[in-house]
Design a protein around this nucleic acid. Structure first.
Length: 1135
DNA sequence: CTAAGCCCTGTTTTT
DNA sequence: CAGGGCTTAG
């Protein structure tokens, strides 16, 4: 391992003839001043080509290993390399098998070969990449929560200090306001305070329109009287009055009764919880004795804010509102010694957990081989692939995680007969213990252990937490429930949740918690909040009829709403994802133009998808169309890189702290990860010893000619970094445009560093990064921020800016950075403030708990929204899985306030037909507005729509003639009115052939043909047919094959003429360049639809283009329809 | 330069 | 299960 780390990759530059066409402008890659830094290096890897764009195919597909290199110094350019970019092929980055053996054999003589010092990725193992994540995220083992709290405290202090004087004046004002408001109260019977203007989607308007509900009824009058006699503070009373009867009933339930609040979507859950807390306070439980549990830090801080706005900031601060994990962490830290750990135990995250799992597996196998004590077994061991070990570890880690979430012990597995599992679990736990560490799951289970095994701990907790409130109860795991149960032996417990919104069972969440609760707290009271304040009646009804198909529901509830019915849910069929994308873009633009200019229209729109990949297309489309958007979740990578860039910028400003410097060194030193760390640690040590700044320490160290601690090359690297820093500050002093500075600074970051960051998500998360591939996209975001900043702040800072004008842009830069920090802080507080005026792109899972006016649910296809994986042998509980998927759609639908769009696509990018989701049939028809793919909204269209609608409900067994097949489209394109491509006008090609098959079969056939038509070797129709026949034979030989009947049929008719024609068609299609093809696809799809209309209606007027074209051909006849016109065109062309 | 064979990969996420 | 990338053999 250690040897590998210092390995280097040689790169062969070849100015070989196929200097590949660089599609993108070369200035993107040019090094300007930056190349000075690396002048000793003769080339610099600037860009990894995304798979899709890799232009070179030495043999069909040489994908994935291409790098564009830029010559970095003039002599190289003049001497031997052309000025254009040069390709170099190197090993796969980030894989351990990256070795110097990956040169592409140069077709001509290599012009120069050079070892690139700056590019020594080879030794990086996946593990190490993982570690690097850790360094970034989890340095100290603090939970994010802890970090949050401290930040909040700081902020609070600041705020308090700053607004000390203001407070007095404000108090006066508010008291006046309240007087006025309370007068209003009397008139309307509704509480109107600034706090109630917007909670859980209830707005003043809604409250007023509901009216009836808030009129105190007889019983509630009692209720209220009760409250009044209890000497309740005015604000509390007012707040409770503002709740509806159910909510108030819940909040005011006797505090010693265990309370279960089942809160459907948009039913004012949080408001009710706040009310409950006020009630607890009012009943004499002091704030410091109340514990509120949430799952995320965001939820916790939101709750604190809400309570603070009613009960006062001081009270809110005294309350303990925390996540399960940070609560448990505190408990475990306090009693670490009882768990066999010190109180400074470490917390293991993903990377370390996996290492531990690997170790556990190794221990097991060692034990085994020793047990069987056979030499050859050991030999077998040693030759096992490291990959296999890793794979196993992954599997077992999953097992361990699951085991811990459900609370099973090693002994239990032993009894169950799963001895391997038992041993692994035990090994794993032992390893953690010996490392003085706990993982996240241990935090919970150890808390349980502390509470059960140590009466003194239990007593302490009972004394401190006299009442407990739990949010999102449906997300509790079995273990967490256990903790709650013990913690709430006093029965002062309130749980809030909705089993229909349980979508995290893959993560250990367990709906059976509701059942357990009923058993464990038999005298519980249940309140169902089933009035939806969020969505229109249409949406509510659709969603609840969907969810009613779930059998395994803990409680039946019919959600009601008094909102207006609103417009129907639009169910939109799109032909492919591009169509989907452009439909949404159009709709968004339409919606935003309808909004009053002042309102933040984009902020009210969200696009929800099942998988992260589905969001990618939208990112690109939105960026192209300049629609602002924000992505939940994966802003991760971006943040890191942005932070690095900011740190670099800060070094150029006066008063820069050491943190930025060390970050910059980390980014710029072209060394291996741990080597880098050693260097930085050393600098830090020197600077603390000498009591000087990081920078001056670094200058001293690297300025020396010889060093005891560092190699010469390291010193050189260090000096280069210092030079770079100097360059940046010069640049800042001279250059006036911030954008230019940011761009050049961003380009200084070595690709390797960026790859490291990227790999963290790619490797560890094992998922496609929801960001673009290179720094330029990050840069784009940053530059967007710049323009936003300039347009917002320029006016205010104008005067000061003039002053600083002569010194480059130091001042503006400073303002920009603080502006960014300000925004970061805001984002930190609550995610919904993330981007006030931008469209939200998010997975459905992440959308839970949020809401928007307009929601698009995208790609609601079978095999996407019920995403069932059949390959994995888990046939176990398909029903349960399906129900969870249905809940997922339910959650997605109920995010919408006003308008809901559900879209599905008909065709994959691979010519595969897709079915609409089975769940869509469960939505009552009368709530839907079904739309096809067309922009014609003439009365004629209605009939087609109708026809389609009827067709849709029987989608499965239905018709071959309504669904446009790619091949049909193809035919239409070539046969009809494709004016620009009129050279291919042979009609009826192939369509007869493909029509022999059923709808579902067609995609298989067409896929088969297209697949081979792409290869160079089969450009001839005859050869293509031969190949297809051959492939069929081969497939038939394999025992398991799904479509063997189809293949037999297909084979038997391959020799006919129609098959030949079809082959020709496919070939012709494949010859069209990809960019054009995409365009044509759409055109064709629209065209096909028109044809359908024509068929149904008889005629549509010919286009002007057709008419003029016909005139040009010398046709005197006036076409009666478009169809007619195209026939005429054909005729006249052949003449 | 190609064909055949091997290997990998395939959802959702918080702490 | 099945498609795709990558490697190797010829």
């Amino acid at each position: 391992m250690a040897d590998q780390q210092s390995g280097r990759i040689s790169v062969t530059f070849k100015a070989s003839k196929p200097l590949l066409p660089l599609k993108r402008p070369s200035h993107d890659y040019k090094f300007e001043s930056a190349c000075d830094v690396n002048s000793s290096v003769r080339g610099f890897i600037t860009k990894r080509v995304p798979l899709s764009e890799a232009p070179l195919n030495t043999q069909g597909n040489a994908i994935g290993n291409e790098y564009y290199c830029c010559p970095s110094s003039p002599d190289v350019i003049e001497g031997c390399l052309s000025e254009r970019a040069i390709t170099a092929t190197v090993g796969s980055v980030g894989k351990e098998n990256a070795s110097p053996s990956y040169f592409e054999t140069p077709r001509k003589e290599p012009v120069c070969t050079k070892t690139l010092d700056c590019f020594s990725v080879s030794g990086l193992l996946d593990d190490e990449l993982d570690e690097s994540i850790f360094e970034e995220i989890d340095v100290t083992g603090l939970l994010n929560d802890e970090l949050d709290e401290s930040v909040f405290e700081e902020i609070d202090v600041l705020v308090q200090q700053k607004s000390a004087e203001k407070a007095v004046a404000q108090e006066l004002e508010t008291s006046i306001d309240e007087k006025i408001l309370s007068e209003v109260d009397v008139v309307d019977g509704v509480t109107l305070t600034s706090e109630t203007t917007d909670y859980e989607g209830i707005r003043i308007g809604d409250l007023l329109s509901i009216g009836v509900d808030l009129e105190p009824k007889e019983e509630e009058m009692d209720n209220l009287k009760c409250l009044q006699s209890g000497n309740m503070p005015e604000e509390y009373l007012k707040y409770l009055k503002s709740l509806n009867d159910r909510q108030r009933e819940a909040a005011c339930t006797d505090i010693s009764t265990p309370l279960m609040i089942v809160a459907g979507p948009g039913s004012g859950k949080t408001s009710t919880m706040v009310g409950r807390v006020l009630m607890l306070l009012n009943e004499g439980i002091s704030a410091s004795n109340i514990l509120a549990m949430t799952f995320t830090t965001a939820a916790a801080s939101e709750m604190r804010e809400r309570i603070g706005s009613i009960a006062g900031k001081a009270t809110a601060k005294e309350l303990t509102i925390s996540t399960f994990h940070s609560f448990s962490l505190q408990l475990c830290r306090a009693h670490g010694e009882k768990l066999g750990r010190t109180s400074e135990f470490l917390i293991y995250g993903q990377g370390q957990q996996r290492n531990a799992a690997i170790e556990a597996v190794r221990l097991l196998e060692n034990g085994k081989s020793r047990h069987k004590d056979d030499g050859f077994l050991i030999g077998e061991m040693s030759k096992t692939n490291p990959n296999q070990v890793k794979d196993k570890a992954k599997k077992w880690l999953k097992f361990v995680t699951q085991a811990k979430a459900s609370g099973r012990t090693s002994a239990e597995y032993h009894e169950l007969g799963n001895e391997i599992g038992a041993e692994i679990l035990e090994n794993y736990n032992n390893i953690l213990k010996s490392c003085n560490a706990l993982d996240y799951h241990d935090l919970i289970s150890c808390s349980v252990k502390l509470l059960t095994d140590f009466p003194e701990v239990f007593k302490e907790c009972q004394d401190s937490w006299k009442a407990v409130v739990i949010d999102e109860f449906q997300d509790t795991s079995a273990m967490q429930y256990k903790l709650l149960k013990i913690l709430c032996s006093h029965h002062k417990i309130t749980i809030v949740g909705d089993d229909d919104q349980s979508i995290f069972s893959f993560n250990g969440a367990d709906i059976s918690g509701f059942i357990s609760f009923r058993n464990d707290f038999p005298n519980f009271k249940e309140v169902r909040l089933n009035k939806n304040y969020r969505s229109t009646r249409c949406i509510v009804e659709a969603a609840s009829s969907l969810i009613q198909n779930n059998v395994k529901r803990c409680q039946l509830k019919n959600v009601l709403t008094e909102n207006s019915s609103g417009s129907k849910i639009v169910l939109k069929e799109c032909h492919n994802e591009d169509g989907q994308c452009s439909f949404i873009v159009d709709k968004i633009l339409e919606i935003s133009s309808n909004y009053a200019a002042a309102e933040c229209s984009y902020g009210n729109i969200a696009i929800l998808y099942r998988r992260q990949v589905s969001g990618k297309a939208f990112q690109m489309a939105f960026r192209d169309r300049k629609i602002p958007f924000n992505i939940h979740g994966v802003a991760f990578y971006r943040k890191k890189v942005v932070r690095t860039i900011i740190a670099m910028l800060q070094t150029a400003l006066p008063g820069c702290d050491d943190g930025s410097y060390s970050r910059v060194f980390k980014a710029l030193l072209p060394l291996d990860k741990d080597e880098k760390q050693r260097v930085i640690d050393h600098i830090n040590k020197i600077s603390t010893v000498r009591k000087c700044s990081f920078l001056s320490a670094a200058r001293d160290i690297f300025g020396a000619k010889i060093s005891g601690t560092f190699k010469r090359s390291q010193l050189t690297h260090g000096r280069k970094v210092l030079m770079t820093l100097e360059m940046i500050s010069k640049l800042v002093q001279r250059e006036k445009s911030i954008s230019a500075i940011i761009t050049s600074v961003a380009n200084l970051i070595p690709e390797k560093y960026l790859l490291e960051k990227r790999a963290t998500i790619d490797v560890d998360g094992g998922k496609l990064l929801n960001e673009d591939y290179d720094i330029r996209s990050v840069l784009q975001y940053l530059l967007d921020d710049v323009s936003e900043f300039l347009s917002s702040k320029l006016v205010e800072t104008n005067g000061e800016r003039e002053m600083s004008e002569d010194k480059g842009c130091t001042f503006v830069l400073k303002a920009f950075i603080s502006y960014l920090f300000e925004r970061e802080k805001e984002n930190f507080r609550a995610r919904r403030k993330d981007n006030e005026n931008s469209v939200t792109l998010t997975t459905i899972h992440q959308a839970k708990g949020l809401e928007w006016d307009v929601v698009f649910i995208v790609k609601a296809n079978e095999s996407e929204i019920p995403l069932l994986h059949d390959y994995k042998g888990t046939i176990q509980d398909t029903a349960a899985l399906l129900e969870e998927e249905r809940r997922l759609l339910y959650v997605a639908m109920t995010r919408a306030r006003q308008k809901l769009f559900i879209l599905y696509v008909m065709m994959d990018s691979n010519w595969q037909m897709l079915q609409p989701s089975r769940f869509l049939k469960e939505i009552p028809r009368h709530l839907l507005d079904v739309q096809g793919e067309t922009y014609i909204q003439k009365p004629q269209m209605k009939q087609v729509d109708l026809k389609k609608e009827t067709a849709k409900c029987t989608m499965k067994e239905q018709e071959a003639d309504v669904v446009p097949m790619p091949n049909d489209l193809l035919n239409n394109h070539f046969s009809e009115a494709s004016d620009e491509h009129a050279e291919v006008t042979e009609a009826h090609n192939g369509s007869n052939f493909i029509r022999r098959f059923s709808v579902e079969e067609r995609s298989v056939v067409s896929h088969l043909f297209h697949q081979w038509a792409k290869k160079k070797a089969f450009q001839d129709a005859k050869r293509l047919l031969d190949k297809v026949g051959f492939v069929i034979d081969e497939r038939l030989r394999q025992k398991k094959n799904k479509h063997k009947e189809l293949l037999n049929t297909l084979k038997s008719c391959l020799s006919c003429d129609e098959a030949f024609e079809y082959a020709q068609y496919v070939l012709r299609w494949e010859q069209i360049p990809t960019d054009k093809r995409a365009h044509l696809m759409r055109e064709k799809q629209e065209h096909f639809l028109k044809l359908r209309i024509e068929n149904a209606m008889g005629s549509t007027a010919a286009t002007e283009k057709q008419i003029s074209y016909l005139k040009k051909l010398g046709c005197t006849e006036i076409p009666t329809s478009r169809l007619h016109a195209s026939h005429l065109i054909e005729q006249y062309k052949s003449l």
